[in-house]
Design a protein around this nucleic acid. Structure first.
Lengths: 221, 221
DNA sequence: GTCTATAGTTCGATAGAC
DNA sequence: GTCTATCGAACTATAGAC
């Protein structure tokens, strides 16, 4: 009796996500160049040739890893922005929390491997090679533009250059918090462990909002 | 007539720094795993075997790259801290600027290759592999502890956990500014190019100080 | 879809001549 | 110190059987 198509499809999907999960960890921990398809296949418990069958080559595998996560973050952010601006203009705190929460929560979701993607996004967000630039531009520039526009609506006195800076500064803080691996607790001798998601969100939001307001007062040029 | 020792020594030193410069660019652009000793040797215009002769292996070459820059930053930061606390307690703005300026200025010093090191430091500061952790712990934890202590002296009402967070947030903003490669100007349609070092320092300092003060008001736990 | 086998590169590191 | 030559291992990607 041949395998039912449903079962085959189920196994396909499992293999595909197992590959993405393993690739995400590998790219995050070893970088694109340091990660090897062989090791990813071993980690995902699939045959090496399957990775080429599903994703053709290493570059497209990398793209698939980024696309999966950015899609989720962008969807959540866009929904939050839609909801925020359908009535009164929200406060800066509410807006910034809506922007940063999806990112920080994903980074704290270790069960789903969010910690690995956190390190990965920090890496390509700060790298200058073509592959990294493409990932950032393609997957994150549109939502960045919309977010900057939202900040300017909430704080009309902020010049555009300051709003861009404020957004980038806030995101960099949120990303580094996502990717931090024991550095906070090491430096504080265990006093500050960053495990508590709500406490982390509150700290980052407070820090970023005060910073953005300071950029409004601190006249540039 | 044999070569004079002075000439030989001069060439040695040039080769060593040429290797470090090329390695810094390679590690920053391609990651540790993606960089190859062969390509570094080609870029530095030295024989491949010379890299092993001077630095034994890839890991020790990486260490040497990090040590060269961190030594400079740490020296400048320690001198600044010594000077700041020999009389009255400085303001938070003065302290934060003293902490961040060496880092930001190095990142803007493209002629000396500081932009490459900027990307490199962001990379290992946010990575979880042993090599990156070792680089961060060994070269930057001591000055980080001293800096956190200084922040607490300037703001006695700040709890230690908040001071640690404030320091890490401020550093992450400064580092991401160093490493940013056209993203600010792309998102602002050229309005904000981050070429002006003084303007950048002023923005980051204003943002970070306001953020740290907000952490003091925002009672944790 | 799944696998083996392998072609074709490139890598880090070393040995040894000069 | 500087170089060539090379070993042995790892890599990406593909061809082709089932």
């Amino acid at each position: 009796m041949p395998l039912a198509p449903a079962v085959q499809q189920g196994r396909q999907k499992d293999s595909r996500t197992a590959i993405l999960d393993a690739a995400e960890r590998a790219f995050a921990d070893l970088g694109f160049g340091g990660a090897s398809i062989r090791a990813i296949a071993r980690d995902a418990d699939v045959n090496q040739a399957m990775i080429h069958y599903y994703y053709q080559n290493k570059d497209q595998l990398f793209s698939a890893v980024v696309a999966r996560r950015s899609g989720e973050i962008n969807t959540r952010r866009n929904l939050a922005l839609d909801a925020l601006f359908d009535g009164d203009i929200p406060t800066l705190e509410v807006l910034v929390e809506a922007l940063l929460r999806p990112t920080i929560e994903l980074g704290h979701d270790n069960e789903r491997g969010g910690d690995a993607y956190a390190r990965l996004i920090v890496s390509f967000n700060n790298s200058a090679d073509d592959r990294s630039r493409r990932a950032a531009t393609e997957h994150y520039d549109p939502i960045a533009r919309r977010s900057i526009g939202a900040i300017m609506r909430v704080m009309p006195e902020l010049e555009k250059a300051a709003a861009v800076r404020g957004y980038l500064f806030a995101i960099s803080v949120a990303l580094s918090v996502m990717a931090k691996t024991g550095r906070a607790s090491r430096l504080s001798d265990g006093l500050c462990d960053d495990t508590d998601t709500e406490e982390t969100v509150a700290s980052v939001v407070a820090f970023a909002c005060a910073g953005i307001r300071a950029l409004a007062n601190n006249k540039q040029k």
